[in-house]
Simulated assay, not measured.
Amino acid sequence: MSPLPATVPAIVRTRIRAAVHRPSRLARLSRQEAEDRSLVFRLLSLLLQYPDSELTLHRTELTDRVRSLNPSSTAGHLADFVTWFTSQDPQVLERHYVEVFDLRRKSSLYLTYYLHGDTRRRGMALLTLANRYKAAGWDIDGGELPDHLPVVLEFAALAGPGAGEAPLRQHCRGLDLIHRSLQAVDSPYHHLVAALLTLLPPPTEADEEAVAKLAAEGPPNEEVGLDPYGAYGHGEFAPPDAFVPPLPAPPTSRTKGLR
């Protein structure tokens, strides 16, 4: 399968680049299989970014890449998404993205939130993730936090199976909750998360119980000196029909420097 054309990586706003190329491939994957898997992660990273004018300009090109994938459940979910994505007015896409990802905590794309909530541990988790990127020879040159799902997906695409995908496996329960939340509001974006979940180990019974508890109770909470956002500003999850902005990561001197 041919790689993405040169014009497509230019729209990756996460701007993760390789300072040292040290691929890590699982022994069971052939070189072609690893490259195909990397392409899927890169497509997911692109399609889960905010649908600005630059991204929507390349919708046809992205759709062609999706439809060139070998038949699989992963490819099927991607095809279902791009069918919707290419049929919508750009303003509709922008509004829908903000509603499901920026204004709903249960489908926020910041993965450490589901594991650590609004606690000081989240700041340390962000620092650990950033250090993982650097240790693998990758650097972040952009405005997003290292736990933003498109960033994590781009790292998986560039670093390869194994260590590159470890952050996704670590946050599989949060990803499961995002998928459930998107399904609950009938968002076509659930196809993208469903495609991602097909590439990760299946959930265990303990995973299922943990996700159910997380959906009911929300992640851990702790006061960290941040101003609350309305009635749902202290870490609890809002009802399905309530739109509230997610709290940012606890500020630290190290995470402020991730630019």
Rank of each mutant, 00 (worst) to 15 (best):
P3C: 05
P3Y: 06
L4R: 03
A10G: 07
I11R: 14
I11S: 11
V12F: 14
R15F: 03
R15H: 15
I16E: 04
A19E: 13
A19P: 00
H21Y: 11
P23M: 04
S24V: 12
R25K: 10
R25C: 09
L26Q: 11
R28P: 00
R28K: 01
S30C: 03
E33W: 06
S38F: 02
R42E: 12
L43W: 08
S45V: 11
L48H: 12
Y50A: 08
L62P: 03
D64Y: 07
D64S: 13
D64L: 13
R67I: 06
S68F: 02
L69C: 03
N70F: 02
S72M: 01
S72W: 00
T74V: 15
L78A: 09
D80T: 13
D80A: 15
V82F: 10
Q88N: 01
Q88G: 00
P90W: 09
V92L: 07
E94G: 09
H96K: 01
V98P: 01
E99D: 14
D102F: 06
D102A: 07
L103C: 07
L109H: 05
Y110N: 14
T112A: 03
H116P: 00
M124I: 14
M124V: 15
M124S: 11
A125T: 10
L126E: 07
L127H: 07
A130L: 11
N131V: 10
N131W: 10
R132S: 12
Y133S: 07
Y133C: 04
K134E: 15
K134G: 02
A135I: 06
A135L: 10
D141F: 13
D141S: 14
G142E: 05
E144F: 11
D147K: 10
A156S: 08
A163G: 00
L168E: 05
R169K: 14
H171D: 09
R173L: 06
I178N: 03
S181C: 02
D186A: 15
D186S: 15
S187C: 10
H191N: 15
A194K: 03
A194D: 03
L199K: 03
L199N: 02
L200W: 05
E208M: 09
V211C: 07
V211P: 07
A212D: 10
K213M: 11
K213I: 02
A215V: 01
G218Q: 04
P219G: 00
P220F: 09
E222K: 06
E223Y: 15
G225C: 11
L226H: 04
D227W: 05
A231D: 12
H234C: 03
F237Y: 14
A238M: 08
P239Q: 11
P240E: 10
P248S: 10
P248M: 09
A249N: 04
P250I: 05
T252G: 05
R254Q: 14
T255L: 13
K256A: 15
